[in-house]
Amino acid sequence: MNILNFLKLSEKVKVTIDGMPVEVEPGTSILNAARQIGGDIVPPAMCYYSKLEGSGGKCRTCLVKVSKGSEKDPRPMPKLVASCRTNVMDGMEVQNITSPEVVEARRGIVEMLLINHPLDCPVCDQAGECHLQDLAYEHGAEATRYEFDRRTFDRIDIGDKIQLHMTRCILCYRCVFVADQITENRVHGILGRGDHAEISTYIEKAIDNDFSGNVIDVCPVGALTDKTFRFKNRVWFTKPVEAHRDCPTCSGKTTLWYKGEEVLRVTARKDEFGEVEEFICNTCRFDKKETKDWVIEGPKKVSRQSVINSNHYDQLQPAQVVKKNLELMEANKEQFERATKF
């Protein structure tokens, strides 16, 4: 017993992120190790999705600095690395918000993501729960330095339930992974190359599958939206409530978004990192819009980072870790000030 425990323990690797140590299983990515620590030191992830194999590495918002490679080979890594696709090594030391280089690079990435992004947040379904909006807010993207026409695409309907506003897409590939891994018969994919690349079906084809609606939930921006979302509304005026039903196809565990007595839309439940806990089926999502369809559990806790939260919900709480660590407090001054102002 003791020996087994010992063996098991010794298998774990120790990594330090922004001065905070954590022990994780070998093969864990830096991002997931950071998520185990939690708080402000978790790098933002726009493309990685733990439930989708092969995701990550593309958006580059999760870049971090590896200042010590491992106990065995302490050399720092020459470039910033994508924390979602770089595994920890024993003794590794990582800097995220304590590295000015990382903060600067991330600011650059956010700027790049925004230069072709429309400024239509006020009319976007995703506003209030958009990861890009959160990022732009946190990284203080000033007035844009981009003085050219933004790239635009026509909206297209992918079937009668889902709409694609390609103009808003950041090409994170998550929806393609969902279509590949969660549904059968992928009909949409990435067409074209470079900055002309687009999510499309090529010839108009409906995504027609029990689980296709999940592409809406994984989309980090408002590019894939629910056409059955009734009475377009700012998300923060709606009230999220956790509910479930006995569903033959999926777990039936969802979040209902209410306005007054009405269910405006149904989504999967999301965790604190904005990922769905369990994928849900299209029947739950699109067809069950009456309170009587559901067993209500109680109000949903809103994620700490999101714009809905800081604007309209419970106060922004500085993460525990920040208070204990002077270096972190310094690095995260802005966030800290914002938090204490409330």
Partner: peptide, 8 residues
Amino acid sequence: GQCSPCRE
């Protein structure tokens, strides 16, 4: 077009 800094 895979990664944002290069694509944009």
